[in-house]
Structures are given as C-alpha cells and as structure tokens.
Amino acid sequence: MIRRRSPRALLALAAGLVLAIAAAVAGVTLTRDGGQPSKVALPLRLVKEISLPGDSSRFDYASLDPGRGLLFIAHLGASQVIEVDTRADKVVRTIYDLPGVHGVLVVPALHRVYATASDANQVAAIDETTGKVLHRGPTGDTPDGLAYDPVHHTVWTTNETGGSETVVDATTGAVRGTVTLGGEAGNVAYDPTTRQMLVDVQTRNELAVIDPAALRITRRVSLPGCDHDHGLILAPADRLAFVACDGNARLLTVDLNTWHVTGTDRVGQDPDVLAYDPVARHLYVAAESGWVTTADTHDRHLTVTGRAHLADGAHVVAVDSTTHRSYYPIPHGTGGHPALLVYQPAP
C-alpha cells in the first residue's frame, strides 16, 4: 500500500538523499539498509496466470473465502474491487465506486466483504454473493487495513494517517467507537485466543493491544529492531505474531504469551502484505520491491525457506489454506496487462 510518510520520516528521507548525493560524488553507491538480502530460491511453482480487468495501476490487499473459492482484490488505482473465482480461474465481477480502495476483507460467516475507501474516508460493506454495496460508513483519515471481531460483531479499520481505529457494526455500519493510538496506524488483527485486537503503531515501533469491549489500549509492546511496523498477521494456534517492518526490511516474530520478540529475519525491501496458511504453517511476506519471502513455523520457531524477486509490483499476497495456493495480483503480467499470478508450493 502507499506509505504516507510522517514528518519524521520525511526528515529522515531528506537526510538520506543528502548522504546519497555525497556518496555519488565520492563514487560510492549507498543502498537502503544494505540493499536486498541474500537470495534463497522460492519453494513455489507457477501454475496459472489469470488476466485481470482494468488498467495497470496499483493493487492493494486481497482476501480469500476458501469455502467458496472467491478472492477479492483491491484495485486501488482504479477504485475497484475485483472478484475472482479461484476454482474456475476466472474473474466473476468488478465492484465499482470505491475511491482509493486499500483494504479488503471477506467474512465468510456473514457472506460479506468489507473495503476501505481511503480517498473518501469510508468503509463499505459488500454482499459477497451479488457484489452490491450494502452501506458505507465514516472512518478516520486514510483507512487502510481491516479486521473482524466475531464476538462483538464489529469491523475494525486502521486509519493510517489519522492514527486511530474506527470500530463499526458489521451489520449496520454504524460507528461503535474510536481508539486513538498515539501514532500512525499500521495493520490490525484479531486474536481469537484472548479476544483482543492487536494494532501496529508504526511511528512508535510498537504493537498496541486493545480490549475490544472497553475500546481501550491495555498494553503497548515495544518492537526492538523494527523501523516502521506496518504489516501484521497472527498464527493463533502457535501463539505467535509476525510483524513486517518496512523501514528496515525486517520480519519480527513476537511471542503472544510473553510479548517478547523471539526472532528477527531479513526480507525484501519495503515489506507490505503478509499471508499465513495455518494448516501448512507457511508464512508469505510480499514486498514493494517485488521480493517475496516464504517461511515455515515448527515448534513455535520461524525458518525462512525462500526469499527472491517474484515479479514487479508483487507486494500483495493471499493464500488458500485448503489448496495451499498463493495469489499475487500484479499491474503488468504477460503482454503488460494486469494479472493474477497463482503459485503452488513446490514438492
């Protein structure tokens, strides 16, 4: 997704440009955080490339209903959500009028899809079967990622530049409340074990743990070694959280029992979207640089199994825990047209 940099980040960027110019004058090449990490062949096999409609503008999140085999892709640059039947390998429909759509989340139990329209500061609820927009509700500034709380029947939106969470009723779209984070919001996730919400506070390099009943922060977890924690996904059965730090290309493993960082791994530059297959225990980290990192969990320990350039623009990933296929929408596939790349784990 598009990073809207804070004043602190802009100052750091300006300083970096000055250093880069100085290095160029001296005949030295500087790369952010030492450049890309060492390459490890990806344990993936390309099985399909599905043509996508629209122009070759930016894609963002994707969310899959594995029971129905329906994948919903946010086409941010076109302000559309594209629905793909992953069993028939074809596009079902395009859902229009979602200005600057960033986040998309399908909730199979409700047969609904939720999408954040960042340019309108709204969250929209969509009928999963018909593609009809059922209602829209207000959010804070620049709504981005989404999570569903099944206990309180609410949808949470991370308002990136607004630095808050907007909590809306999953049925009506009415705002239930707002949680101020004290910094820019990254991604949000629901922990089904503790029934709490976890949110990246990316300008503070920490996780905020929120009581969804009281709508208040109960704990702040420091993330040493992380610069700008943006990506977040949980492995609830293993009591682990995975945090992608797009400022220094690091992936952190956080123990959800002790709240300690137990592992740090290098990933491709500007990591963005994460996906986790809880059945196979496979983790996927897609980066703005087009690099994808794969990793496996065993005995609550994460091991990197692959790390390489997959395709330009492949910063979004979704995974199907029934087929174990992973999906990557990209602006330029074969012939230069937008496409959905479908990969299977290699034997």
Rank of each mutant, 00 (worst) to 15 (best):
L105F: 04
V342L: 04
A286V: 09
A244G: 07
V84C: 01
L341Y: 03
V319S: 07
A189K: 14
A275R: 06
S38V: 05
P224R: 00
K132T: 14
T218R: 13
A241R: 14
P138L: 09
R239G: 06
A214S: 13
D191Q: 11
P138R: 11
D227V: 14
L30H: 11
T253E: 11
V104F: 02
A117Y: 03
V91W: 04
V179D: 08
V175N: 07
L30A: 09
Y343R: 03
R112L: 08
T154F: 05
A244F: 05
L13Q: 15
T303W: 10
D312G: 15
T142E: 09
T262C: 04
P150E: 00
H298P: 01
Q36A: 10
I126V: 09
V168C: 03
L215Y: 13
V107C: 01
A241I: 10
V106I: 04
T86L: 11
T86H: 01
V92I: 12
P53H: 02
G183W: 14
S51H: 05
S56P: 12
A286P: 12
D33Y: 12
T172E: 03
T139M: 11
Q36N: 07
R325C: 07
L283W: 07
D238A: 14
G34K: 13
I2T: 10
A62L: 08
L70N: 00
L42Y: 04
H315D: 10
R45D: 13
H301F: 08
V40Y: 02
Q36F: 05
R216C: 09
Y284L: 08
D97K: 12
H260E: 11
T264N: 09
A346G: 07
M197G: 03
A115C: 06
